[in-house]
Write a protein that binds this DNA or RNA. Structure first.
Lengths: 152, 152
DNA sequence: TCGATTTAATTAACATATTAACGATTAAGG
DNA sequence: CCTTAATCGTTAATATGTTAATTAAATCGA
């Protein structure tokens, strides 16, 4: 009755990722892109000029990882780093013409996979799944257990 | 109307993982364990003697990663590698007394987090979420797109 | 205005993921 | 039997995740 290992949230999520990500990766590989590199291009598609912090939040790629990913994207001339003038700590990441072109070419194919995955369940099922996972995410960490992190 | 980036399956799953895993990691860190190291101990808890292939399947840790993780567990005297006699290619991973003791101590606390996460939604919601994700996982890869991997 | 406190990006150190390839064994088939 | 194909664990090369610390720049308050 207790939570079986295989039915714990981490295992459920990992199983789903393991089953679905290869579909995306196969596509990305055709364009010499990694999943993370794609995510960055994808964000730059809608937001021309993004600071690293924003990019980290929007792509869910941790800031330290971001450094290397952007380095590699820069090496491929897909993005550029532009130091901000107002706040010289900040750095803006911008897609190059080549980067935007690549994004334009890959994007519809990614969307196709997105929709194909979504189509494996009913609209309502998907909606519930999304809502439930959101609810769980909110619940997490909100209740710091009894591990008394209290006085700071 | 098309699948928004933020609502794509990978992003949904990553958001959920990012929100929930810290709860577990905080616990593991107290015992100098990583998530992967824990998963291996957890499997050895119910199956005394497991081959690397099985371990990879049950923990969802890719075989090449498994090598390093087990190395570190061995260094800490938590598990041992035992070469099989019937099939000398195979290697059995076995938990040491120390490893079993540690698992016994950590296990209930992990279960507590498991249950706390599960309690953030109703039993039915959880059930639907689990079923929907399973359905999506099955749908993935089943339809190889038009990328004609056909004749092999 | 100066010093303590933040904040942005990065570096460092370590652990893991991904894909390909390799060596040792074993199973299959002719 | 003996060659060939398949399997298990592992190594290799590269990319990313995780946590802590560092550097430079901005901000805040005495």
């Amino acid at each position: 009755m207790s939570v079986n290992f295989d039915n714990s949230l981490p295992m459920i999520l990992h199983r789903t990722l393991d089953a679905t990500m290869p579909d995306y990766r196969e596509l990305f590989a055709r364009y010499n892109l990694t999943e993370q590199q794609w995510r960055i291009l994808r964000v730059l598609w809608s937001s021309k000029k993004v600071t690293s912090v924003d990019l980290s939040n929007r792509t869910l790629i941790p800031a330290p990882s971001l450094v290397g990913v952007i380095d590699r994207l820069e090496k491929k001339d897909l993005v550029t780093r532009v130091r901000s003038v107002e706040d010289r700590r900040a750095v803006f990441i911008v897609a190059t013409a080549k980067g935007r072109a690549l994004e334009a070419e890959v994007s519809p194919q990614v969307t196709e996979i997105d929709q194909q995955l979504r189509a494996s369940v009913t609209a309502e099922e998907w909606q519930v799944m999304e809502r439930v996972l959101g609810k769980i995410a909110l619940g997490a960490n909100a209740a710091p257990l009894k591990t008394a992190q209290g006085a700071k």
